[in-house]
């Protein structure tokens, strides 16, 4: 790792001020992605500004319509939260399956959404549940937030503060994990929102990161059943291929996982 200067921000204003003053600063969440890239010398920020002690980025609020989660909440905190388990159990289960327990102790919701790894899990939940990402300067509907692989609507000096997830009628996430990295080779979140809209979001498989499957959403809107999901073929044209799986393989997984997710969500 190259030299760097660490600072612990104690407020949102403090974090933004430190970022302005830094030559080439980077915000630090749990460090579970950023430190690895710094160790490989793929990133060499002059300053790392730790966001995880900022009170505004903590706390989980569950109201009648939404679950609102502070961006510095770790995966372990989300997985263990009784209010989330009672309202969006699919989100608790998703968090409980990110990486391993040590990664879940450190890794944060904000870090995952800022990084937008094409194989990360939370982007699928944010997109399927029609979440809103609230930052230090704006609020983005998930549909506008994810702009490509490792790319988001965020500016370099913008901090994710909290994320609100509308409580769906039902939802489930199915992940086909890479057994070595624990990331998704393909993951599908299926949700029927409170207004009856069905949304299907796919991670791990998109050449441009997380994406929705409108044909499958249409099929499930009329008939929220595993067969309806399974009947929609996905064109491998825009699907990711790498050493873990071809485009055809991943395209095949999408309806398979979607059908399992619908079954898990109680569709029959």
């Amino acid at each position: 790792m190259f030299s760097t200067k660490y600072a612990r921000a104690n407020s949102l204003g403090d974090a933004l001020e430190r970022m302005r003053a830094a030559e080439d600063g980077k915000f630090l969440g749990g460090g579970q992605t950023l430190l690895a890239t710094m160790k490989q010398r793929l990133a060499a920020p002059s300053d790392v500004i730790d966001l995880t002690k900022i009170p505004d980025l903590h706390g989980i609020l569950v109201n009648e319509h939404d679950v609102i989660i502070g961006a510095a909440s770790t995966h372990a905190v989300v997985a263990d939260h009784a209010g989330i388990a009672a309202t969006i159990p699919a989100l608790s289960a998703l968090a409980a399956n990110i990486g391993d327990p040590a990664v879940r102790t450190m890794g944060t919701l904000g870090g995952v959404l800022a990084n937008n790894d094409p194989a990360a899990d939370y982007p699928a939940a944010a997109l399927a549940l029609r979440a809103t990402i609230h930052t230090s300067s704006a609020s983005y509907p998930a549909d506008d937030y994810f702009t490509g692989m490792f790319d988001t609507a965020l500016d370099e000096d913008e901090v994710i503060v909290r994320v609100s997830f509308p409580i769906p009628l039902r939802a489930a996430y199915e992940k086909f994990r890479n057994p070595a990295s624990r990331y998704a080779i393909c993951g599908v979140m299926v949700a029927e929102l409170s207004d009856g809209t069905v949304r299907v979001a796919v991670t791990g498989a998109g050449a441009d990161g997380v994406f929705r499957v409108p044909e499958m959403e249409a099929a499930l809107s009329g008939n929220f059943a595993p067969d309806a999901a399974r009947s929609v073929a996905v064109d491998p044209g825009d699907i990711l291929a790498d050493m873990h799986g071809s485009s055809e393989y991943r395209a095949h997984l999408i309806p398979v996982l979607a059908a399992r997710a619908v079954a898990k969500a109680g569709g029959a």
């Binding site: 660490y6 612990r8 630090l28 460090g31 579970q32 430190l35 690895a36 790392v48 730790d50 995880t52 372990a76 391993d100 327990p101 040590a102 990664v103 102790t105 450190m106 070595a180 990295s181």
Partner: peptide
């Protein structure tokens, strides 16, 4: 990846190779 470096920080498991001492 391997977990040989796991320690507890405030009682929770952490991979000591993937966290700064300052953190």
């Amino acid at each position: 990846q391997c977990g040989a470096c796991v320690v507890h920080v405030d009682g929770e498991p952490v991979k000591a190779c993937s966290v700064l001492a300052t953190q």
